[in-house]
Nucleic acid binder design. Structure first.
Lengths: 188, 188
DNA sequence: AATTTTATTGAACAGTTGTATAGTAAATGA
DNA sequence: TCATTTACTATACAACTGTTCAATAAAATT
């Protein structure tokens, strides 16, 4: 059975209202009452679907992280983007993606926002690494631990990028990632 | 001039009350009113020093991350703990530290908590890496970006550890880190 | 010990939160 | 098209939030 049209309408109204309000103020300062007033949705209805304003934002952000995955799945020139060896700056798509949705990632990485979005991104990037064709696990290294290490390392670059107001160019970051990864940590 | 004794007393009362309440319920569910009632501090007084319950927790957590730094500064056997080369499992202290304060890190890494604590930890670990005696920056690699990469990679392991209910032993993690780092990413 | 400074208190305010209930409206499916 | 199901609304409630204020108490300064 498909979802009730009324639910779709309610959610769309809340999504739209959230975007409108985000143009004026920060996510933390948007109250449920205010969001519902803007969306012309009863506050009780809100609680039927969500618990906090942040949950509405999360619904949005899931679509965005899905875009991240999609851009990797298309096999044209973006294959094996996060291959940790034989890494080519032109095949790395993650910085493009983040730049494209910079406005959202500024929110995701802002300090008063809950960790839930961070985990969403973390899981997404880990997933990309695990579907990496070169996933020949090294002996003695825990695969889960390793992908957590690698994925979060890249997110660390994103955090740094955001902290510096996204002032690096995408190409610059691609080159830096290649250097850091291919330099490894032993072969200085 | 030193801080007023009344302020110290008020803050201690709030700290104590927060610990008491954290034994029973999660951080997000503790209201300002409840915290003040427990601490026997007027709610208006709370707003004189803090804005949210989380800010009281942050004050605590700062002491804990300070302990992380201290354990590295003592030059006995813990020197150069996060040296990225010549890494010895016995010199790595970060997993010991996190295990010691597991109760706090469970909160810091829980999904409804604001990113502010994460950044506190991120900055602390980055600081440890930057004071690394081996900080001979490789040519063409941005030092800030590199330490962000490395620091967050390690925190990625912590996230994974927490997600798996801290079931790895400290020694196991130390060994894994050594393997991951010293295997590098090129020399498969 | 007396004076000045300032942290804390208690009270009050409008607005928000989370929850519940009964009535209404709209979508679904036969 | 009609009956059934279910999402939505309006309203109400107690508790919490963020802020302000005059009064008080307790520090710091002389």
């Amino acid at each position: 059975m498909k979802t009730d049209m009324r639910i779709v309408k309610t959610k769309e109204a809340l999504h739209e209202a959230l975007l409108t309000l985000l143009d004026e103020k920060s996510l933390e300062t948007i109250s449920i009452t205010e969001l519902c007033r803007t969306a012309r949705v009863n506050r009780g209805t809100f609680y039927l679907h969500y618990g906090r304003v942040e949950d509405v934002f999360e619904e949005y952000f899931r679509e965005i992280t899905a875009d991240l995955a999609v851009s990797y799945q298309e096999p044209y020139r973006h294959v094996a983007v996060l291959k940790t060896s034989e890494l080519d700056p032109d095949t790395i798509r993650i910085f493009h993606h983040v730049k494209k949705y910079e406005r959202f990632y500024r929110i995701v990485f802002s300090k008063n926002v809950p960790l839930q979005y961070y985990y969403l991104l973390f899981e997404e990037v880990k997933g990309l690494l695990l579907t990496d064709p070169e996933a020949e696990v090294r002996v003695g290294i825990d695969a889960g631990l390793f992908s957590a290490y690698q994925a979060n390392a890249i997110i660390g670059m994103l955090l740094h990028w955001c902290q510096h107001d996204f002032s690096y160019t995408v190409d610059e970051l691609n080159r830096q990632l290649v250097r850091i990864v291919s330099a490894g940590t032993t072969g200085q």
